[in-house]
Simulated scan of single mutants.
Amino acid sequence: MADPATQSPYISSSAGGGPSEPGSTPIPAGGRDSKGTSSQSCAVHDLIFWRDVKKTGFVFGTSLIMLLSLAAFSVISVVSYLILALLSVTISFRVYKSVIQAVQKSEEGHPFKAYLDLDITLSSEAFHNYVNDAMVHVNRALKLIIRLFLVEDLVDSLKLAVVMWLMTYVGAVFNGITLLILGELLIFGIPVVYEKYKTQIDHYVGIIRDQTKSIIAKIQAKLPGMVKKKPE
């Protein structure tokens, strides 16, 4: 494990403890500005809970059609057809507006001028903020992988082994695209159902959680003392 003092300043700043670059805006602990993070969380929450039916329906429908297309065709074909469809719409609209302007002899200009003038460049500060956020998650994932594969805790490593063993059966029935389709259906379906039947679901989940803890406690009680799960 590297000494924290020798880590990159970008990684240090992501943890909120390192110095920031001269002239750059200080980054709060935990990554980007908390207001931006909370607004993004609220946007995702509103999306999966169907607060705006039109917006959620568009995102859900578009992504589902994309996944279904990938299940039937290759990635290259799907991407090519999407680009061709988009170009067909924009080129047709551009030609249509040009003809209308020629007939009416108007000076409206390019129909997409407002979008062409938008500033979509990514600043170096924003790029570094995204990199800092990504590094936090990457470091956390690497630490978890090392902890599981080098068996720091036997119970946790056994849990991973059981899950991977079950996934071999899942992989024999479903491919990756099918799992993504099912995942999207669950993401856009479960939150709405849970919000509607929250009380009943919490009751049954509590029962299952208590039974699971009881079973795990019995299993750990039968393990040798040196491999029992350490108390938190």
Rank of each mutant, 00 (worst) to 15 (best):
I91L: 07
N175G: 02
L158H: 00
S106E: 07
P9F: 13
A15Q: 15
R147F: 05
L84R: 14
V95I: 15
I177Y: 03
I208C: 11
T121L: 09
E232T: 14
H128C: 04
A5L: 05
S13C: 03
I219P: 02
L185K: 01
T90A: 12
G171K: 00
A71T: 04
D153P: 01
G17M: 12
T37Q: 07
R32N: 05
A2Y: 12
Y81F: 04
W165C: 12
T212P: 09
K97N: 13
N175W: 04
P191F: 08
V53C: 10
A172Q: 00
A2V: 11
S98N: 08
M1L: 11
S38T: 14
I190F: 02
L182K: 00
D119L: 02
L150W: 06
R209H: 05
V173E: 01
G206S: 03
T25C: 12
G23M: 06
E108N: 07
T121E: 10
G36M: 09
K196Q: 05
S92E: 01
V53I: 15
L67G: 02
T37M: 14
Y130Q: 09
T37K: 14
E195P: 01
Y204E: 13
K230L: 00
S92F: 12
G225N: 15
E21C: 13
E107I: 09
L70C: 02
N175Y: 01
P4R: 01
V205E: 15
V227T: 10
G171C: 01
H203P: 03
S14C: 14
L144Q: 12
G30W: 06
D117L: 05
G23A: 04
I177F: 00
A126H: 13
L64E: 00
V136M: 11
L158F: 10
G225A: 15
C42Q: 13
I187E: 03
D117A: 02
Y130V: 00
V78Q: 01
L186R: 03
I83D: 10
Y81M: 15
A15N: 08
K35L: 12
D119S: 01
D210P: 08
Q220Y: 04
P224S: 10
V95Q: 14
A134N: 07
L47K: 15
S69I: 06
G18I: 06
G225L: 09
S63G: 10
M1F: 14
P4Y: 09
K105V: 04
S41A: 11
T90N: 11
A172T: 05
F188H: 11
I91D: 08
V162F: 08
Y169S: 06
M66H: 08
L144E: 01
K143H: 13
Y169K: 03
A114R: 10
I146S: 15
L116C: 00
E152R: 07
E125G: 04
I190W: 03
T199R: 15
Y194G: 01
S77M: 07
V193W: 03
A72P: 00
F127C: 06
L118E: 13
K198Q: 11
T199Q: 11
S124N: 03
P9S: 07
L64S: 02
M135P: 02
A217S: 11
L223Y: 10
V99S: 02
F174W: 03
L64N: 10
V227P: 12
T199W: 08
C42N: 13
Y204V: 14
T25E: 11
F93M: 10
L84D: 00
S69V: 05
T6R: 06
